[in-house]
Write a protein that binds this DNA or RNA. Structure first.
Lengths: 191, 191
DNA sequence: ATATAATTTCAGTAATTTCTGAAATTACTA
DNA sequence: TAGTAATTTCAGAAATTACTGAAATTATAT
């Protein structure tokens, strides 16, 4: 596995950004290496390409698997594990969203739910509880919306994204059409 | 500044989650403390409430200011700085989105743009470049969409969120109405 | 100007995270 | 089943990050 200068720049960038993304340098570099390589690579090739220890690669791959960001392959007559990233960048994004949410948001949502079940009498606690309620409601709205968007087909999501701020006009249109013909949704079922 | 057990649970949680969110424990705790306190607090009060050093609080507040997550207040006849979080959770979210994007996404977008300007001849570089193009396009679509949504009034955003997956039906409705009356957008201008 | 209060800076230390090399384990082959 | 290849585990070293206390700086009051 030789890495060209062109690829190296990308790999090093991911290594540096890793800190900010909550992964370590090696994990970032392994991911970047796999991302720009058409063929799946085995641990030995990764070790050699990145010039880090074999054990470090092993741990890095384990973490990437925990993130569900890499796929495992096997070749006939070769018992080594080969790793690759999904080809579809949208699929990668979806995984990233799901996993980051699981690690960075869900625990807080759980904590907030618990806190909101408690009764408080103290005046300052009453304010604190109200603030937690606001935070909880905001996070819940966002995650519910994310859940629903995730069930949509890619075509629809792309359309929505392309629409951008124009969604406002569409929402107005929806209201006015519904006012004129309350049965519009049934009529559209067949589309 | 005394912190109740109820508030402490919230503060400690934020301290622990800080790691995953890219801030240190103290910064997380300071933010949580300010978030659940109705009144703004000065550095001395924070120091005392969290039992950390005064200098640590100073650095933590500096970081929170860099994130634009706290507001600074002054009281007549008191020259200490008082800190608070915005009351509006939507405003907080918006700040968070803007800042995280600036730190975690923009540098990568810049790097990708640079890489995509280069000419490559090597076959493996050609594949790498194509992958970078895919990543670039995805990130750009998302950030552009985010930009546009950010310009919308809160009412519209809330409506869109509430709609959730129902946005698909609305998009279909939009298409069919436009087919029937291509001037619909002009007619709606006045709404 | 001087004194004092408030805050920041920073060098050193503590704590944590990352990485390595060696040993252990697992998986396969002959 | 013994031998070997591949991978994982883990204790300790290296590197990084977080925190403290003391000193320096800044701001305000007398």
């Amino acid at each position: 596995m030789d890495v060209t200068a062109y690829q190296r720049a990308f790999i090093l960038h991911f290594g540096e950004m890793g800190n900010r993304w909550g992964i370590n340098r090696t994990v970032g570099q392994i991911y970047a290496l796999l991302y720009v390589n058409e063929e799946a690579l085995n641990a030995e090739q990764i070790t050699q390409a990145l010039a880090v220890s074999r054990s470090n690669v092993s741990m890095g791959l384990k973490e990437l698997q925990a993130w569900r960001l890499v796929r495992l392959h096997h070749r006939p007559g070769d018992r080594r594990d080969y790793f690759s990233t999904p080809e579809d960048v949208w699929e990668i994004l979806q995984t990233l969203v799901v996993e980051r949410r699981r690690r960075e948001i869900d625990p807080t949502l759980t904590m907030l739910r618990g806190a909101l079940l408690e009764e408080v009498s103290d005046e300052s606690d009453r304010y604190a509880k109200q603030r937690m309620q606001e935070m909880h409601d905001l996070i819940e709205s966002l995650t519910q919306w994310l859940d629903e968007v995730q069930t949509l087909d890619r075509q629809t999501v792309l359309q929505l994204m392309k629409l951008g701020g124009g969604v406002k006009r569409l929402l107005m249109l929806g209201r006015s059409v519904r006012r004129a013909d309350p049965d519009i949704d049934n009529e559209l079922e067949g589309l």
